[in-house]
Write a protein that binds this DNA or RNA. Structure first.
Lengths: 131, 131
DNA sequence: TCTTGACCTCAAGTTAACTTTAAGTTGTAC
DNA sequence: GTACAACTTAAAGTTAACTTGAGGTCAAGA
């Protein structure tokens, strides 16, 4: 596959694929002339990267997990930690969501006069998004 | 209150407070010489900003919601929309969390050979984090 | 063979949200 | 009244994750 095909199948622009390669996140199997040639499993690798991103890993973290070999070498403890971290995030977001929903429906003249809204402020102030 | 006190009470560095002022997110009530003077409600305003950030608004969006006046003028529909958006995010994250937890526990020789993990990849690839 | 469109590299640009630095001013404690 | 810690501004720097641009190469179709 050439880069255009990978781009089309993955939905990522070619520039991103080159960027990922430069970062060591993916690699082509070779070249035909100047042009990169990828094989089909690149799509799995890209999906894995997307998963990592979605779970909140940085590209550098993902690069470390993938290691230098093609086959991912993912530390199970790392995954469990990330799951726990995600869980905390989810709880915070649920608080936010409920607070926002209340604020949207609340009849207090101004949000600032609504006790629930003020409680939300406390929640948010409190490192909800530390990092 | 001077900027140092606001910084201490809010936990934000003075540089951030100046930056927020420059962006129109907050304002001081005046100056004593060169120095900014804030009144106590700045803390509520900052909490509101923190809330907005935590809910996923950009500083520009927050500035728009706050309007030019001190009192927030938050569109209830906007809040409801944001709550819905958060809700979708939460659902995605729950899928991720469960997938990660499974992957951490899974006994397949490589994550790539585990059907649940592969399903996760699909989830992630699929615009889970579209901006 | 010639043209051309898709690919290439490398460097610089972009955006968000700040932080840092340099140079200057001043309220306040002694 | 003087030293100085803490404030001030404006501009430049930072980080992540890309994107864009300039200038060049090349495989494939007419």
């Amino acid at each position: 596959m050439d880069i255009a095909k990978v781009a089309k199948l993955s939905g990522l622009p070619a520039s991103t694929l080159r960027f990922y390669e430069e970062k060591g996140l993916i690699s082509s199997v070779g070249r035909q002339g100047l042009r990169r040639v990828f094989n089909a499993n690149i799509l799995d690798q890209l999906a894995l990267i997307a998963l990592g991103r979605a779970a909140g890993f940085s590209l550098d973290e993902i690069a470390r997990m993938i290691g230098s070999k093609g086959k991912p070498n993912i530390d199970r403890e790392l995954l469990a930690n990330k799951a726990d971290e995600l869980d905390r995030t989810i709880k915070k977001l649920i608080g936010m969501r409920d607070g926002l929903r209340h604020a949207a429906a609340c009849s207090a003249p101004s949000h600032m006069e609504c006790p629930k809204f003020r409680r939300l402020l406390g929640l948010a102030a409190d490192g909800a998004w530390s990092k």
